[in-house]
């Protein structure tokens, strides 16, 4: 681990100004000299492993803007999450649990209690892949060292993505919270040297394509300040189902975030996102469409799952995720249908 400069900016504009001074417009946030840190549950780990190498850390925990730490119901009836609110706080928040069970579930089923108490919500959605070949610097990895190749492609790739992958990268996006956010059409608020802006959550992460080292739409001096979920009254009928090798503290092999607007047994609208199987938070739009106006039963759920995985590209060790992903979605749809709300 190399020496680095550690600073605690007093407010958002100062943090942006410092970051702006030590980065350029072309820098990727994950590769810039100056990087932001909040809970540190991901970045500190990767710095120790030599995967991340910033020479200046801007600790956001002392930012004076209190709204960064708040979770509250908006005037429109949605929820606004301050970027520095911790996963644990959001998972336990009564209004989150009442209005968006899918969000509370996705947080409760992630990481461990200790990590949930440390990790910030914005940091959580920006967490980097846990691909074994990315984590260990002696392997070839296009995401870590652009152009060096991908050892995972023909290697041990049981954890890897079957949706959204490219010839350059098959690393999975492992987060859970992001699946709930993308399903609910969340919006991210960010501030940078070029001002404040809103980013539709679905545009925040980038598929790897030829440039897997470009992971998000953010500039290196941009800070997420809040995540806002719009009012969706029927999202009380929603859940997050996470299938993994052990019952806690493991990444999803497959997961599904589902919200349903039902008219009796007929689907008015469905929201579906898939975790553990894709390179980025994954909204299954075609699957949602295929379910609209249909009676939700085991057969229509299976047809929906087929649509969700129609484009999947399995590899040697992760081929089972096709079948597992479909069954996870079927189960999630039926369990959501049967929720008492």
């Amino acid at each position: 681990m190399r020496p680095f400069v550690y600073e605690q900016p007093a407010d958002v504009s100062t943090a942006v100004a410092i970051a702006s001074r030590f980065t350029t417009n072309d820098d990727q946030p994950t590769r810039a000299n100056a990087q932001f840190i909040a809970g540190g549950t991901n970045l500190a780990d990767y710095m120790k492993l030599g995967v991340a190498d910033p020479n200046r850390l801007l600790d956001l925990n002392k930012l004076k803007e209190q709204e960064l730490r708040h979770i509250h119901v908006t005037n429109e009836g949605g929820i606004r999450f301050g970027a520095l609110a911790r996963m644990g706080e959001a998972a336990d928040h009564a209004e989150v649990k009442r209005r968006y069970p899918v969000i509370a579930d996705s947080l409760r089923l992630a990481a461990s209690g200790q990590i949930r108490n440390m990790a910030s919500l914005a940091g959580n959605v920006l967490q980097r892949t846990r691909c074994e070949y990315f984590r260990e610097t002696s392997w070839a990895c296009n995401k870590r060292v652009p152009g060096s190749g991908c050892a995972a492609m023909e290697g041990f790739n049981r954890q890897h993505a079957i949706l959204g992958a490219s010839d350059a990268c098959i690393a999975t996006y492992h987060g859970d919270f992001a699946q709930a956010l993308i399903a609910l059409d969340a919006v991210v608020h960010a501030e940078g040297s070029r001002g404040a802006r809103k980013i539709v959550f679905a545009k925040l992460h980038r598929q790897p394509g030829d440039t897997p080292h470009i992971e998000t739409d953010l500039a290196a001096d941009e800070i997420i300040t809040a995540i806002e979920v719009p009012a969706i009254p029927w999202a009380r009928r929603s859940l997050y189902l996470k299938i993994r090798d052990r019952e806690s503290y493991a990444f999803a092999l497959a997961s599904a975030a589902v919200a349903l607007d039902l008219d009796g047994e007929t689907v008015r609208e469905a929201r579906i996102a898939l975790g553990g199987v894709a390179t980025v938070p994954w909204r299954a739009g075609a699957a949602e469409q295929s379910l609209q106006g249909k009676k939700l039963d085991e057969a229509s759920a299976e047809a929906t799952a087929e649509a969700a995985f129609a484009q999947a590209q399995p590899r040697r060790h992760n081929a089972f995720k096709m079948e597992l992903g479909k069954r996870t979605l079927v189960r999630a749809l039926l369990e959501t249908r049967d929720m008492k709300v």
Binding site: F156, R246, Y249
Partner: peptide, 24 residues
């Protein structure tokens, strides 16, 4: 897990080398 091409271990940490946790 071993990457058979290189005879190298792949899951060399407790993130990927799973053991039971309390919930199991």
């Amino acid at each position: 897990e071993i990457d058979r091409r290189y005879a190298r271990y792949v899951n060399r940490d407790l993130q990927d080398y799973l053991v039971p946790v309390n919930a199991d």
